[in-house]
Nucleic acid binder design. Sequence first.
DNA 1: GGCCGATATGCAGGCAGGTCAATGCTCTTG
DNA 2: CAAGAGCATTGACCTGCCTGCATATCGGCC
Lengths: 125, 125
Amino acid sequence: MDYVGTALAEMTMPQISPLAGEPIERADAERLAGVLKALADPARLRLLSLIQSAPEGEACVCDLTAPLGLSQPTVSHHLRILTEAGLLEREKRGVWAYYRLVPTAIATIADLLTPPRKRATKKAR
Amino acid sequence: MDYVGTALAEMTMPQISPLAGEPIERADAERLAGVLKALADPARLRLLSLIQSAPEGEACVCDLTAPLGLSQPTVSHHLRILTEAGLLEREKRGVWAYYRLVPTAIATIADLLTPPRKRATKKAR
DNA sequence: GGCCGATATGCAGGCAGGTCAATGCTCTTG
DNA sequence: CAAGAGCATTGACCTGCCTGCATATCGGCC
């Protein structure tokens, strides 16, 4: 299927209404939900955490299967989902595939959720 | 099933490792994933958005079925999930059930995700 | 007390998602 | 070139989730 892919990129655009002012659009809700769905799994959260705290901020699949206690295909599957969601980037060096966090990806999601932060159209009640 | 429930509350405790420093714990990952899973649905994102942008910051089920285009039982179901995740609070006034956002709930999630923010053990490369 | 409107709950059908075993692919090494 | 290591992909199983229909529950009103 199409899968999110550029979803995160689109959401960094100001056009997407975050969980703030006006009621969110159908399409925007689906995009945001798509990325959140990539995050909403214990194995994937741990993968992000493991990669982020690895020596050089990067890790290959063989380093990740053991701490997760999952099979190699399953780990590959999760990494793929995270990559397609725009949260990880993959670099193949020799036989190994190194994954690292896309710099501001997660922070962007956090910003989208965060707060009304007093827009304009909304008065303080 | 048990369902998250107090999951968010537990995560506001400093004890939970966010997506930041050390590798995240299994149990913590499952709690965070539980709350994110509640968020990771287009209908529920729109519900939060609709409620948040409603006149008094609150809305009853009857106001929400139409804009979503979902049946009343389905909307009730989603509201239940959001409430059990600690994102909404329910107040019954007469025949109506009014839902409103739990003040800092979503912001808390955003904070948990947000920042590597340069811990200590990690050098700039 | 009985009726009606607003919600919640049970149940069932259909689809998406997590996991693993087996297999294919690619790059390295002998 | 042959063998092997590291990953990705496929297929299958099983679970969980979204949705609607039917029904139960609760509060107000005649």
